[in-house]
């Protein structure tokens, strides 16, 4: 009796899972869930090729790929950090491909093996109902008006937050961060975790929020404003890559084409990300509107541990 129950449970498990067993292409993405759901549905409608999606934070997507290294299943990877594209290319894991739809993607958003799907930028996310003056610059948040009211996404958990830290440090040293710490700023998890207290009014602003989440909240009616400091910020292009172990490389290439098509880029724009193609309209500030801080990714990432160590030393209690 026990054995048969065990078997029944096992059979049940297989039955539940059978729907996902026959994958057409498999996409791992660190991008917004609604965007990939939209893109997958549109792609399937157009080509008949089914898309299986695994969506999580960059860190968890990477963990899955590393754990699966012996028997990988992912065909297309969309990361939230350009660093992934560089790193995977060095490991020789990527298929060189230049989509015909990538013509209008600026050169700095594409390589032989990767192309941006869209771009996010970091900004100050500020709650107008917080009773604080509207900040304009990063350094404003170190002023007494924002005492104990600033959240900083953890650069150890967010690639873009790390790049902003490195860029601002290169620009003006650690002084800004020391001032922020003295002003009671708190390191608060990944991006959404840092934003939620600002929405409720527990904090006034996020120092280096991922813009599209706040912009989407704004559209929904949340009391939130997105400010791109004139002194400059960093952008996080989101690379799309085809993995060289993929057995469906043709379908994978079609998928990349679709992401970069008019339709695909319109969906990107609808999630409040900047489209990768310069010729696609979007209802938000675009790269051209922002002052982008240039960073030398190789140099920055080679010093990653050291930078994080200093950052943590400042914010450790």
């Amino acid at each position: 009796m026990r054995i048969s129950l065990f078997a029944a449970a096992a059979a049940f498990g297989l039955a539940v899972s059978s729907s996902t067993a026959m994958a057409d292409i498999t996409v791992y993405t660190a991008g917004p869930a609604s965007l990939i759901d939209d893109l997958a549905a549109g792609f399937t409608a157009k080509t008949g090729v089914k898309v299986n999606v695994f969506q999580a934070t960059t860190g968890k997507v990477m963990a899955r790929i590393e754990a699966e290294a012996a028997n990988p299943v992912v065909d297309v990877l969309i990361s939230a950090s350009w660093d992934t594209a560089t790193d995977f290319a060095k490991r020789g894991w990527l298929v060189p491909y230049t989509s015909p739809n990538a013509v209008n993607v600026p050169d700095f958003l594409k390589t032989d093996t990767a192309v941006a799907q869209g771009v996010s930028a970091l900004a100050i996310a500020w709650n107008p109902k917080s009773g604080t003056p509207k900040p304009a610059e990063w350094s404003d948040l170190a002023k007494p008006e924002y005492k104990d009211l600033v959240n900083i996404p953890d650069p150890a958990q967010s690639g873009s937050a790390f790049e902003l830290t490195a860029a601002l440090e290169a620009q003006s040293g650690w002084k800004l961060f020391e001032d922020l710490k003295d002003n009671g700023a708190v390191v608060a998890g990944a991006n959404a975790e840092a934003l939620n207290p600002v929405l409720q009014g527990a904090k006034a602003a996020v120092f280096g929020a991922v813009d599209y989440i706040s912009l989407a909240g704004m559209k929904k009616g949340e009391s939130i404003d997105v400010i791109f400091p004139a002194s400059g910020t960093v952008i996080a292009p989101r690379p799309v890559m085809i993995l060289n172990w993929s057995k469906q490389q043709d379908d994978a290439k079609q998928f990349v084409d679709y992401v970069l098509s008019d339709e695909g880029q319109a969906k990107v724009a609808a999630t409040a990300l900047m489209p990768a193609r310069t010729d696609v309209k979007a209802d938000r500030p675009l790269i051209g509107d922002l002052n982008i801080l240039k960073i030398d990714t190789d140099a920055v990432y080679s010093k990653r541990e050291e930078t994080l160590g200093k950052f943590n030393a400042i914010f450790a209690k």
């Binding site: 917004p32 299986n52 991006n191």
Partner: peptide
Amino acid sequence: LLVAPVGTHTVASFIWRQFEQGSV
């Protein structure tokens, strides 16, 4: 979050995804 088959969501991973997306 880590072992769910691709394309499959459990309640928790669904909720988690909403938090991450800012749809608290």
